[in-house]
Simulated scan of single mutants.
Amino acid sequence: MYMANRVFELQYSRFAIVLQLFIFIIIICLLYRLLSIPLWLLSIVIMAVAWFVFQKKPQIQRFEYLDGQEWSFCFRHLPHSIQHRKIRQIIDHQCYIVIYFYDPLHPPCIIWWDQLSVSQWKNLKILAKLA
């Protein structure tokens, strides 16, 4: 399959942050009704720490098609390091796309619609249908 101009430059997703904040607020409201105040405050601290820990996971800055199933990935925390990975599957969930890799050591990547330009988002959706 010929793939011309398959370079994707990712931005930070504001939508993902707002969605996480919305879910966080809903959980806090539900826990407020279910727990005593000390346990509720403890749960808020635990959820905040968990959120910060999950924010430290590597985030893709750029990825590009190379050949066959081979792609190159550049991450924000290692801007000068490029990793080569084979993509097993790309699944389109309308407002985000999940990329699965053959190597089980690499966790799946989620790409939100607001991380790409409109043309790049359309190209990635087409790629997900073809894959």
Results as ranks from 00 to 15, higher is better:
L78N: 09
L66G: 04
K57L: 15
Y65Q: 02
H77T: 12
W71R: 01
L116P: 01
K86T: 07
K129Q: 14
W51E: 08
N5G: 12
Y100E: 07
Y12R: 15
F54K: 11
R62C: 07
I110K: 03
F63T: 01
L21A: 14
I111E: 00
I46A: 09
P108G: 03
V53S: 06
E70Y: 12
F15C: 09
M3W: 15
E64L: 05
V49C: 06
I111N: 00
H77I: 12
Y32P: 02
D114L: 05
Q83H: 14
E9R: 13
Q61S: 11
G68N: 12
I110D: 01
M47R: 02
K57I: 09
D114V: 04
R76V: 15
K56T: 14
Q20W: 07
Q120V: 03
V53D: 03
D67I: 10
W112G: 00
M1W: 10
I87K: 00
V7G: 05
Y12I: 09
V18W: 10
H77R: 14
I44L: 11
M1H: 13
L35E: 03
F24V: 02
R85M: 15
L10K: 02
L66T: 08
H80M: 13
Q69T: 10
L116S: 01
S119P: 02
P79A: 07
R6L: 12
I99M: 04
D67W: 15
L66M: 14
S119M: 09
F22N: 11
L39F: 14
V45K: 04
Q89S: 06
L10G: 04
Q94M: 15
S81E: 12
L31Q: 14
D103I: 02
I37Y: 12
K122V: 09
D67Q: 14
W112A: 00
A4R: 11
M3I: 13
Q59V: 05
L127S: 07
M47W: 02
Q11P: 03
H77S: 15
V98I: 15
H106K: 08
F24Y: 08
R88D: 07
S119C: 06
Q89A: 06
L21H: 11
P79Y: 09
I23R: 04
Q11D: 13
P107A: 11
K129D: 11
Y100T: 04
R62H: 09
I97G: 00
L31E: 11
L21W: 11
S117C: 01
R62I: 03
P38E: 04
Y96S: 00
V118Y: 10
A16S: 09
A50W: 09
I87R: 00
F52Q: 13
L39V: 06
I27G: 07
Y12F: 14
I60H: 01
L78G: 03
I37W: 12
G68C: 06
V18L: 12
E64F: 03
V45P: 00
C95D: 14
R33P: 05
M1S: 15
F52G: 03
M47P: 02
V49A: 10
Y65E: 02
I17R: 12
K129R: 15
C109H: 05
S117R: 05
I28W: 13
Q94I: 15
I111W: 00
D92G: 03
G68S: 06
W121N: 04
I126A: 09
C74H: 02
F15R: 13
I27C: 12
I126R: 10
Q61A: 10
I28Q: 13
Y102C: 06
V7H: 07
S36F: 09
F75N: 05
